[in-house]
Design a binder for these strands. Sequence first.
DNA 1: AGACACACGTGATAC
DNA 2: TGTATCACGTGTGTC
Lengths: 198, 198
Amino acid sequence: MENIDDEYRNYWETNMFLQTEELDRIGPFFDEAISTYYDYDSSSPDGMQSSSMASKNIVTERNRRKKLNEMIYAVRSVVPNITKMDKASTIRDAIEYIKSLQSEEMTIKAEISELEISGISSSNISANFDIDIQEATISCSKTKRTRMDHCHDYAGSRLVMPSPIEVLEGDVEEKDDLRVKIEAAIAALNYPDSPIST
Amino acid sequence: MENIDDEYRNYWETNMFLQTEELDRIGPFFDEAISTYYDYDSSSPDGMQSSSMASKNIVTERNRRKKLNEMIYAVRSVVPNITKMDKASTIRDAIEYIKSLQSEEMTIKAEISELEISGISSSNISANFDIDIQEATISCSKTKRTRMDHCHDYAGSRLVMPSPIEVLEGDVEEKDDLRVKIEAAIAALNYPDSPIST
DNA sequence: AGACACACGTGATAC
DNA sequence: TGTATCACGTGTGTC
């Protein structure tokens, strides 16, 4: 019962996003219609293959399409800057957003590693920083064995997929303010008398 | 001419990912085949609508499909933890990855703001702290450009993983080790004589 | 041996 | 007007 409602919501959201496109097919009613229209129990193997099999394929394909559309809507809900309400454009904006977040995270992480190096010379917590990293590595590679291949570890996907179509070679829009902020704060805390060093 | 090569690469990569699925259609040859088979220049409006219009729709739809597939491949190249080589699963992993990156960024940003507050209340540079950050933005973002490239020695490989165990069900925690690290380091730098709390 | 995933062509629709 | 996208059913291949 909730299946029908879910499919209704799918259609509704489609029309909300895409300005009442493809409303003609009522959609959920065709599930039952097909399963009662095609399934007239012809015991011959040929009839089974052409009628019931086809209806199952139809409903399976429809579920697959619905799932992919839900994923597209979920992407639209997560990514903040959606330019066009299109499938390809939505995924392109998501890729752009992921790239910007990755570059920002990389700069922050570089700052953290630099902080570790500067922390070795002054503080005593530098020793268990390395231990923490080692333990994280060990636990990560151990839990990987529990489930299936789970392609991760370093560059798991980039080795499989080197460079697709050189698509989206655009800007990464320079979100440096966070990096500069933490940088300045750490410098100010580390050397409170001299403002900036190196 | 480069169009055919591009579509060839598209098909090849599809088969590389999905274990030689849907190879039977040679694909690019049908472009020319359709445009020479349907386009027999029947000057009647009905014939134009049924033949040439259909071929244009076919090639347009094919381009649209190709573009969306390229976006899917680009998502696979950007997102590190791809669990299944499926379209919907790919987008789901991308959403999961985006959520983990967002939560991590939020914690780091909260940490920065908290650091600013603690710097105001305790240190003597608290008065001109904001101005110091503003000035550090200009003087520091030039000098730190050289050190950006040594960030991927060991920090770029496994901390970028959202969570090594069970990425699927929305548990985006375990990002706290980074926060704990920066927190401990800042505390150690701020109070070098007192032992570490937290 | 059936479930699953995909590409394809086609009709419909919005700008 | 044409040009874009979309959902749909169907055939086909893989596991």
